[in-house]
Simulated scan of single mutants.
Amino acid sequence: MQEVIHARGHENVSAEHTSTFEVTTDDYLTPAGDCILAIDADRSPADFDPEFVEACQTQGSRITFTIEADGYSDSVTGLGHPSLEFTNDRSMVGRTSDYVDDRTIMLAAPFAAEGFDRDLVAALAEGAEVTVTLEVDA
């Protein structure tokens, strides 16, 4: 089961954060947003199909976040959890920790923004069109 989000990069994408990565519906990005990979997303967690959300809330589920831009692609797989809410209408955040809030889309990711392919990050910083695919294996 999957959800597809379309967004775009921005000149301030640096992908340097060590514990989170984020995609936001906001249409701007300041240099302080070092976890943000893409902006102007056409969907947020609050828009996701209830069946997808339920699958992500299954203990032991695995969630894969794949981001593609300008011919580059990278993926990270983390864990779902019954506490995941998927209610935020603005942004989605993957975490290396077990912290949960309404933006959290996965826990225990093996890397955060700083771990994404640097050629992909360069394309994001050039403002490339982005496709994000979230896939859950419950």
Rank of each mutant, 00 (worst) to 15 (best):
A55Q: 03
D119C: 01
D101T: 02
D137R: 13
A138N: 14
P31Q: 04
D47P: 03
A46K: 07
G115E: 06
V76F: 10
T96M: 13
P45Y: 05
C56Q: 03
S91I: 01
E129Q: 13
P31T: 05
V132Q: 01
D119W: 01
T77A: 12
D47I: 06
A38E: 08
V130Y: 08
E54P: 08
S61G: 12
T18C: 11
S83Y: 13
F21P: 01
A108L: 12
M106I: 04
V53C: 12
A128C: 05
A123D: 03
E129S: 13
T30Q: 10
M1Y: 10
A55M: 09
V13I: 14
H6L: 15
D119T: 03
P110R: 00
G127P: 04
I36E: 01
T64S: 14
F21L: 15
E11N: 09
S73V: 11
E114N: 14
S19F: 12
Y28G: 04
T131C: 02
T25F: 02
L134H: 04
D101L: 07
E129F: 04
D26F: 05
D137F: 09
E126M: 07
E51W: 02
G127V: 03
Q59W: 05
A112R: 02
A128F: 01
A112M: 03
S61H: 09
V130L: 08
L79P: 01
A15C: 10
D89Y: 00
P45M: 12
A69C: 11
T18I: 09
F52P: 04
I105K: 00
D117Y: 06
D47Q: 07
G71N: 02
A128S: 09
I5T: 07
V130D: 13
V100E: 10
A122R: 08
E54L: 03
D137H: 14
T30D: 10
L120Q: 02
E85S: 13
L120W: 06
T96P: 09
